[in-house]
Amino acid sequence: MYKIIEKERLNPTVTKMVIEAPFVAKKAEPGQFIIYRTHEDSERVPLTIADADREAGTVTIIYQIVGGSTMELDQMEAGQSICDFVGPLGVATHTEGLKKVAVVGGGVGCAIALPVTKKLFRQGAEVHAIVGFRNKDLVILEDEFKANSTKMVMMTDDGSYGEKGLVTAALERLIQEGNQYDEVIAIGPLVMMKFVCAVTKKYGIKTVVSMNPIMIDGTGMCGGCRLTVGGETKFACVDGPDFDGHLVDFDEAMKRGAMYRDFEQHAREAGCNLLNKEVK
């Protein structure tokens, strides 16, 4: 069992949890992920690691409630324990030798973009963080990004906070202003990463994306997390989750990601009904 040390709601649908998992904490690096199960009968769910404290032996995860399984996790409170927490899985994000990087985060993807931003900033790189949210109420981790970047650009779709517009517009403007990036790291919804890649391809800037496909074991056994990258079948769990964004077949990944949408919708509604009953 893995104890929840801390729980904090970051916005109406995004929660941060600090979990006691000393073995995972000892090895976790930015870009890697864990798989958790809340209860004995729960699904295995992959989540990218948001932070790790080697001394305290804790790992931080930040998740958005999207279906039955994240809803189930969200019902747990600090002091309680979850059934399984395995990791660190996947290959850590490569940061060696990078001098100037733009990190683009979208929505809850910002939670995953933060650790690599921190790592790059601490190793002395010039880091431009471009973070985007739908509106002001959904903004998370603003102070953390400010403290760990040379420049931070806040974007909202509706203009209720920061600048109005998409992260791609901000990125393109920075490139046109003459910023020469060694690499762009994009982490967020598939559609956002796809369009970031479309921009950077135009300017010939290497772009790394973090893929989060459907996954079961996460250790290189089931093959559910396969993607087409540069025309080859790759597995996000052992080959990724980071890939060269210019080679990823995003359209296919989006279709595969929607495979169980009906099931998730159903689970979410069933979960809500259950909650409603409890409230009554």
Partner: peptide, 22 residues
């Protein structure tokens, strides 16, 4: 044993294609 093999034919990433392991 490790990761499942696929045939490398068109359409293997369509929804409804599973590895037996999965």
């Amino acid at each position: 044993a490790g990761l499942p093999r696929f045939m490398g034919i068109p359409g293997e990433s369509l929804k409804g294609v599973y590895s037996a392991n999965e």
